[in-house]
Design a protein around this nucleic acid. Sequence first.
DNA 1: CTGTTAGCGCCTTCAA
DNA 2: TTGAAGGCGCTAACAG
Lengths: 340, 340
Amino acid sequence: MRRPTIADIARRAGVSSAAVSFALNGRPGVSEHTRQRILAAADALGWQPNTAARALSAKRAGAVGLAVARPARTLGVEPFFMQLISGIQAELSERANALLFHLVEDVDAEIGLYRKWWAERRVDGVLVVDPRTADPRPAALRALGMPAVLAGGPDPAGILPGVWIDDARAMARIVAHLRELGHVRVAHVSGPSGLLHTERRSAALHEATRPGATGTTGPTTVTTDFSDTEGARATRSLLSAADRPTAIVYDNDVMAVAGMSVARQAGLAVPADVSIVAWEDSTLCRVTHPTLTTLSRDASRFGATAAGRLLALLDGEPPADVEFDVPELIVRESTAPPPA
Amino acid sequence: MRRPTIADIARRAGVSSAAVSFALNGRPGVSEHTRQRILAAADALGWQPNTAARALSAKRAGAVGLAVARPARTLGVEPFFMQLISGIQAELSERANALLFHLVEDVDAEIGLYRKWWAERRVDGVLVVDPRTADPRPAALRALGMPAVLAGGPDPAGILPGVWIDDARAMARIVAHLRELGHVRVAHVSGPSGLLHTERRSAALHEATRPGATGTTGPTTVTTDFSDTEGARATRSLLSAADRPTAIVYDNDVMAVAGMSVARQAGLAVPADVSIVAWEDSTLCRVTHPTLTTLSRDASRFGATAAGRLLALLDGEPPADVEFDVPELIVRESTAPPPA
DNA sequence: CTGTTAGCGCCTTCAA
DNA sequence: TTGAAGGCGCTAACAG
């Protein structure tokens, strides 16, 4: 049997197809009585809208895109993205929108994909993640006229509306915890220097620990590519310095674990000799010994909010930024007072 | 400026829109000369097909779906899925297809989503992962008449075509390695009993190590939910038994890491007292001490093949199963001869 | 308040 | 080989 169409419903209910369309979309133009009759007919036939037809007519794909330019390896090892996606989907599903997800090589490929998606009208807009310094994406999206929301920070270019977590205050919270314990020399093993959130964290650490002001010495930031290998290398160089830090803050969990191994190999105990903090709570942080003190963000809610902002934008609402509360610091076993 | 349409190209090239359609789709009906002229015009205008219009007309969405019923937490911690997706996308992109990705609560929700996707004609078919015992999905998909490929095993119901890796022979390979080292008592910390690939592994281990036949004693399999917590619990119970195993095979990396911690806490050295093998190579397996001996699969190629089979199915090719080669065993530091 | 009508952009018959 | 015409299923203008 053929899939029922609006024309079928119209025939069954004895009205025009336009009336059916109105009734189905809950808009004025039909009396309550006929609306009920139409809905009953649609229900009896098991009608479902054909997205292609709706998209063609309404000039709206009913889908949004998410392209991610990170190596699959890095992505898979972090729970952040999956939870982000989970949150995005919860929000999208509620409004009958689908998510097109795509892994890309780099930002250029990402822009190329946006161009393609937009030209084909595959999506109505996109969620942009991992904002960078000198990020070409906002300008490219504006040039395309493609609706977008930046998830992960305010747009420095002021083009795209953003949704973000306050990294600066999160870092301040970590520093406060370490200072309470008595730490003076705090180091930071960060992600690539091109990523905005990483830059913000470094800047915040430098601000919070500037010499004199707070009783801590100026910190050292070592940048990495987020991998365990570079996390280990960075830790090795930090710990072998003359004035080695008594606490190290890592920009993700994998590097924190790798760093902890390096410390142990170097004959240092965690947290007795060196304290460790990971930025991102995950299973990984709880299976290690000692368990890791981490910063915990609600990635799911973050994703839902970003998706919600994008849908609002598509509905014609004015662009607006949303800043989240400062994430929680989960204190576990990897932080303790520094050695005397 | 308006997005160019076929009518625009036709006007520019001075031909009919039908001629343009023929030229663009590389089918007979236009002379080579006009075809070139048309292609040049399309190029000059930067024309791209509108997917909604094409989908409506061709009755084909140009998209396939992937719904995953695993907790986000479990997903995110394993690199397998991201690489799988990466492979799927590479194959789909090549043929101008998009991927709709969706996380669902359970198999029932998954079937509900298939029903919805199919009713809306959102996708042309789906990739089904994590086949289970008494899996309701193949029958549900057949009832819907929805094209699908099962990624992760042959369909026991014989309904869906499948793409899979030979778990039985992979397990045999692990057992061979352990036997060479001299292990006699091998235990298995598996995933949930409902998952087919987990069942296959357990069965293979039991087969390979049945008493007498191979010089090993009958193995013990403990099922878990894949989490680190249950992996730890299972390890604790295995190691505290009177006849404790000298080697343990884990169904993923997280549990192997958790198990290693438990062994250490129990005063056992890895691999001196107990050897450990993880099923899945990931960063996690290389940052631990000792590094983990793992089974390595090519998830990306696996995904690409599955996607390729689905597209072939959509093109009307007959369903066909594809079995992969046995995955490689990467021997690292966590396996050694058992204690004397 | 209702129903008719004409597209949305593409593909594909049919005649010419 | 080409052009005209119609339909895919839905929505949004119109008139009635």
